[in-house]
């Protein structure tokens, strides 16, 4: 792989002049603040369609903050602010006329801790997004089967769709959450350390799921696990903080990041020398 799609600020701007519309998700000079606290500085990244990008870096460097900027979850924190722009298929998701709920339908999210809705059955959990967003769908059974299959959970739960989501194991719950996100047919799926609360077996299962998902949608995954990053991602982005705001050190094809990174700090980090 000689040419990577992930580019930095300057080159993104250069390309902007040439190619008018980038298909996929793209950030340009994104910053984030919590009140006065500048948490993230100047991140420009491109996430092409149908790829998996891993975000790596030590804790507190702003990975979660960054990922929550990508589907407008950042704004739920009362003092939050941002700068720069996030483009989905070329249009700014922070433009005043955009409806954040619609953005979140297109850019789904899976959280660190598995969190099926406690008062709902497995089936209801999968269909929750459709109900919440008032989407008109008639083939509910089909959606349930299809999403659970894609999330790699169908075989395990097909006989107990009416059981409570809480009755599943941790790994199964997380796959249920993935199925729930898939039901609203997002173009991009954000995952913030989706396996950090799970056992190794469930982790492998979810990694397989992620690879299968990438055949249809864009996946952006935050992970602390270097092996996981190297196993599932096509591209990697390395974040760091020196006590100040977090910033992007380097972004490239995963193989290059792990074998021959440009920045020595990336090399140190992927080899486990710090973080």
């Amino acid at each position: 792989m000689t040419q990577t799609q992930i580019t930095t600020n300057q080159s993104a701007n250069q390309q902007n002049g040439e190619t008018s519309k980038f298909i996929g998700l793209e950030t340009q000079g994104v910053h984030a603040w919590f009140g006065k606290h500048h948490a993230l500085s100047n991140v420009s990244l491109r996430f092409p369609e149908r790829t998996v990008t891993g975000l790596i870096g030590p804790s507190g460097c702003g990975k979660s903050t960054f990922i929550r900027l990508l589907n407008r979850m950042h704004e739920f924190i009362p003092s939050a602010a941002m700068a720069g722009s996030v483009l989905l298929n070329g249009s700014d998701i922070y433009a005043p006329e955009e409806d954040p709920a619609m953005i979140r339908l297109k850019v789904g999210m899976v959280f660190q801790k598995p969190n099926p809705f406690p008062a709902m059955t497995i089936r209801e959990n999968v269909l929750a997004g459709i109900k919440l967003a008032h989407l008109k769908r008639s083939n509910h059974d089909e959606i349930v089967e299809q999403c659970l299959t894609r999330a790699g959970l169908w075989k395990e739960v097909k006989d107990r769709l009416q059981a409570s989501g809480g009755s599943l194991s941790g790994g199964q719950q997380q796959r249920l959450c993935i199925a729930r996100s898939l039901a609203v047919e997002p173009q991009v799926l954000l995952m913030d350390e989706p396996c950090s609360a799970l056992d190794p077996g469930s982790t492998l299962r979810i990694e397989e799921t992620i690879k299968e998902l990438a055949e249809k949608i864009t996946v952006i995954i935050v992970t602390h696990n270097m092996q996981q990053a190297s196993r599932v991602s096509d591209h990697c982005a390395f974040f760091l903080t020196d006590g100040g705001p977090g910033y992007l050190v380097e972004a490239d094809a995963t193989r290059k990041m792990f074998t021959n990174p440009t920045d020595s700090r990336t090399a140190d980090y992927v080899q486990g020398k710090f973080g």
Binding site: T2, Q3, T4, I6, T7, T8, N9, Q10, S11, N42, S44, L240, D242, Y247, L248, V249, E250, A251, D252, A253, K256, T262, D263
Partner: peptide, 8 residues
């Protein structure tokens, strides 16, 4: 043609 961000 990978480029490194203007780090930090």
């Amino acid at each position: 043609m990978s480029t490194v961000a203007n780090a930090g």
